[in-house]
Simulated scan of single mutants.
Amino acid sequence: MEIDFNKNQDGLVPVIVQDVKTKNVLMLGYMNQEALDATEQTKKVTFYSRSKQRLWTKGEESGNFLELVDIKNDCDNDTLLVFVNPVGPTCHKGTDTCWGESNSQEYGFLSQLEEIITARKNDVENPDSYVASLFRKGINKIAQKVGEEAVETVIEAKDSNDELFLNESADLLFHYLILLQSKGYQLNDIVKVLQERHK
């Protein structure tokens, strides 16, 4: 990996730090060659502090280290993307990121769908909401719907109509998300189980 530290007069390159699991951006720092070498040797992300005018390992005082997983350089060789496993909050103000955001796993539209299900679950008085009506009927009805959708998905999987298979798969996933919430869980809980199995 060749980094052009001479592009700027101070010999520093910007470093974007990203959680390897959640893909959330945690912070922005700067490195010179010495900081990069220290990071690769110790496997703990080390920056060059412009205010302290010295090398600074994130977490050296707080214990909230950024454990190195991988480093990539950009197309111009003047910016680094560092993938880490954070140990505790990243920001010195105590937040997960330097933008005050939670470093939680997001799944794009599926996360939005979970939020919608939560809102409908909590709006059980709404007679027009299909989701709310399922929650009103209870766990047995929700589990039954998941079973029905699972059987229909299996049937369509054995057929050759891809559109029907995808629609039944979507129905199964939708009702499974409802079942998870009826049991007090979300996708993140299932992902954690899978990650533990993967170890």
Score class of each variant (00 low, 15 high):
N32S: 07
N77S: 13
R120C: 15
F83I: 13
K72T: 13
T57F: 05
S102G: 03
E61P: 04
Y107A: 11
Q33K: 12
S62M: 05
Q53I: 04
A119I: 13
I16D: 07
K72Y: 11
K44R: 14
K58I: 03
E40H: 05
T118Y: 13
T118F: 13
L66S: 08
E125G: 08
L113V: 13
A35W: 04
I16G: 03
N85S: 14
C91Y: 00
Q9W: 10
Q53Y: 02
T97L: 00
L110R: 09
G100S: 05
S102N: 11
G29N: 06
T95H: 05
Q112A: 12
G88S: 04
Q18F: 12
L12A: 08
T39W: 08
S104V: 14
E61T: 14
G11K: 06
T118G: 13
P86M: 05
K23I: 07
G59W: 00
I16T: 11
G11V: 01
S49H: 05
K121N: 11
L110Y: 11
L36Q: 07
G108C: 03
I117M: 10
G11S: 06
D19I: 03
V15R: 00
P89C: 10
E114I: 10
Q18M: 14
D19F: 02
K58F: 01
S62F: 01
D78T: 00
T42K: 12
G59T: 02
E106Y: 01
D37Q: 10
L81Y: 11
K44L: 12
D96K: 00
L110K: 09
Y107H: 11
P89V: 05
T22V: 07
T46L: 02
N73G: 15
T42H: 09
R54Y: 04
D10P: 06
W99V: 05
W56H: 04
W56E: 00
C98D: 00
G108P: 07
C91F: 00
E114R: 12
I16P: 04
F65K: 00
E115R: 13
E34H: 10
V87H: 13
E125L: 12
L81E: 10
E34Q: 14
N64W: 05
V69R: 15
D74R: 11
V87F: 06
P86A: 04
N77W: 05
L68N: 03
L36V: 02
A38D: 04
D37H: 06
V15I: 10
D96W: 04
E101Y: 02
T57D: 05
M31R: 07
N73L: 13
M31F: 06
C75W: 14
N24S: 11
K58V: 03
E125P: 01
N103W: 01
L68M: 09
V82T: 11
T39Q: 07
T22Y: 07
T46R: 00
N73T: 15
Q18V: 14
D76G: 05
L12V: 05
Q41I: 04
I116R: 15
E60Y: 05
L26M: 06
V15T: 04
K23D: 03
G59C: 03
T97F: 00
A119F: 14
Q18K: 09
